[in-house]
Design a protein around this nucleic acid. Sequence first.
DNA 1: CGCGAGACTTTGTCCGGACATGTTTGTCTC
DNA 2: GAGACAAACATGTCCGGACAAAGTCTCGCG
Lengths: 250, 250
Amino acid sequence: MTDLDMASTSTAPRYMALAEALRSRIAQGDPDVGQLLPTEHALCETYSVSRHTVREALRMLAEAGLIARRRGAGTVVVARESRQRFAQHLGGVDDLMQYARDAQLTPLAQDTGPLDPAVARALGVNVSGVFLHVHGLRGRVGEPAIALTDMYIRADLAPEVQAFVDLNGAVTEWIAQQRGVPTARIEQSISAGALTEREASALKASPGEAALRTRRRYFDKGGRIIALSDSVHPAQRFTYEMVLQREAED
Amino acid sequence: MTDLDMASTSTAPRYMALAEALRSRIAQGDPDVGQLLPTEHALCETYSVSRHTVREALRMLAEAGLIARRRGAGTVVVARESRQRFAQHLGGVDDLMQYARDAQLTPLAQDTGPLDPAVARALGVNVSGVFLHVHGLRGRVGEPAIALTDMYIRADLAPEVQAFVDLNGAVTEWIAQQRGVPTARIEQSISAGALTEREASALKASPGEAALRTRRRYFDKGGRIIALSDSVHPAQRFTYEMVLQREAED
DNA sequence: CGCGAGACTTTGTCCGGACATGTTTGTCTC
DNA sequence: GAGACAAACATGTCCGGACAAAGTCTCGCG
């Protein structure tokens, strides 16, 4: 069944029928996770539909989280199934950070250049390109800082440093608006560790004190890196809270 | 500003600029909730763009939950602002725990009774009733344990202890099936701390070593507590990973 | 005056085309 | 073998058009 003869058996639009056909193929591993889907042009021929219809179907699959599309490279399968039972909903990236709205970023240092290999390794990425790196403290005026943070923003997307500081961390939302590159996916890891002397000094805490470390990778729709961050929080000053709600069954 | 001259000030696509212009209007109540947006045709003329571009912009606003579109009737504003942007989706509670499937629970102690006030305080609850308490280690056979955990399950819902152990932590799913009480909401907090001597001894780690502490509260539909848990993980053995996807809202 | 049918309006589906932008591959030169 | 550059490939943006489907309005008839 390559031609879409769904019209004869249901009233579903063609792009929905195509999305379903592709979803079914992906669920069977054809193609599997990590592999490329046929190109839009090929799908037009295989299923005898216009490119518009193919694009609509692919958009649905992308929104379902099954595929990621990259201009020039193609469309890769990222998940076999959409598995949604519990969900944590966040208003925006700043909710993810869990800092109070008035927690300001105080830059301590900045530079622009390729990512240091040790930094890339710590953040779990293998990425080339130039990044704006801003190192600073995060906290309310007059209170102990809650985070010592390093942000790395792709230089081609980054604002000016002072504008970055004024954004108080909402840089990915600025990039979405001003650069037309919205964040589509965020990977965060949370781990425990002990503060180094340098970290403790900047945070006015004790060396060796327990700390929470949060690392984030921000990706665009095509899976390319937008920004990275690495923050450390003294244990006494920060706890990460999350709420998950059960969702309706599909 | 009716023509889209965004191209001269940013690289954002036209449909995004239009979506932003309309989102801004809606935020200002022009049109207000319950009122109709101008038709697609009118927007094409007002903003000097094709219908395709208008439709893309409207699709974005619809996905953001700001508008609802009805064939033949028009497009109505349903919300002034979008409040939900990102979500973390989990297949089930065991995904939340992030233990390998074969990570077994070894009980070290158990008892049944009311919640100790200190425990209740640590877990952020004020609850009466009787709980089955199981204290144990979690890890793969032959490997260092990754968690020392205390689980508290409402006694009226709890399985037998041996059955509980066989469930390997998926007790809330057993309760959903066998007791007809599904978990509707989970609250989790993640913090850093240092291992106590007792904890370090059980985990075969060093006292004072940095550790991640995860605490969870499981609620049913009516907001009543089903279970509680408090786990501590040596830093070197466990990192909490999460992935958030940008999503449409309903 | 109320109801139904038809006309008109508005969004949804689907086609086609062109050009832009980013990625990958191939070729050439040092 | 490495680097630079060009060409080919693949998706993204944007235009235009036609027809379908659903909703609203108007007019005529009972």
